[in-house]
Amino acid sequence: MKSSRRRFLKLAGIAALGLGSRPVVDAAYAAVGGQAAPEPKVGRQPEALTAKQWAMVIDTRRFESAADMEPLIEACHSIHNVPHFENKRHEIKWIWETEYKHAFPGKENDFLPWEVKERPYLVLCNHCENPPCVRACPTKATFKNENGIVVMDFHRCIGCRFCMAACPFGSRSFNFRDPRPFVAETNKKFPTRMKGVVEKCNFCAERLAEGKMPACVEASDGALVFGDLYDPQSKVRQVLNDNYTIRRKQELGTSPAVYYIV
């Protein structure tokens, strides 16, 4: 009993590396001819939300000033224990507000409508369908999970920062020093990070697993819409149908999953 469990855990470890758990486990039991003891299983919580590709639509018309965005940014940064540094070089941010010309460089016309040019824009990781950061990572510490989220595995990151060079959106931050003392109030339910690893928005993977919408979406009062890009019935698709949207630097072919109604 004990040894079969130990074997299960080893195999599950292998399976977690991407070999697929069932065939390995079955083959191993068949090979030893063992009577399978009751095994532990892993799975999703029943309330978990899943998608082929999670996507977000940001209705920028709903944000008139940086103050309108503050609650969204605060919601994200506080539940994810994002530290606040005075030193700009050590800065870490998952979601932040910026100007039109910074969010959409190359798309700035000289004579845009005043409100389009002056309105703040919310930027975050685009969870690209074809992410260059994932291509660059030498350890698969950043990868695209089965819901289309570009995830960081902080346990595995070696801190080479190749992903930061690869990201064309500046969405990634690096822990230049121990962040823990710079987290004003820690959320005990979510880990902090350690120095020397890269971090970024995770589309609230931990909340989706519990059936909750991402924190920024929840705090946005409907200005942010979130859903499965490949489910024709999803709210995201309805909004994309009804509105003309743009994406950041889509000419680079990364296929960002964050859309903007301007």
Binding site: A136, T139, K140, C157, I158, G196
Partner: peptide
């Protein structure tokens, strides 16, 4: 490297799509 002690992860999880 930010985490030099984990350097061998490059060998443990070989990733041919990474130029590194």
């Amino acid at each position: 490297l930010g985490q030099p002690m984990r350097m061998l992860n490059v060998l443990f999880y070989p990733t041919p799509n990474s130029v590194l």
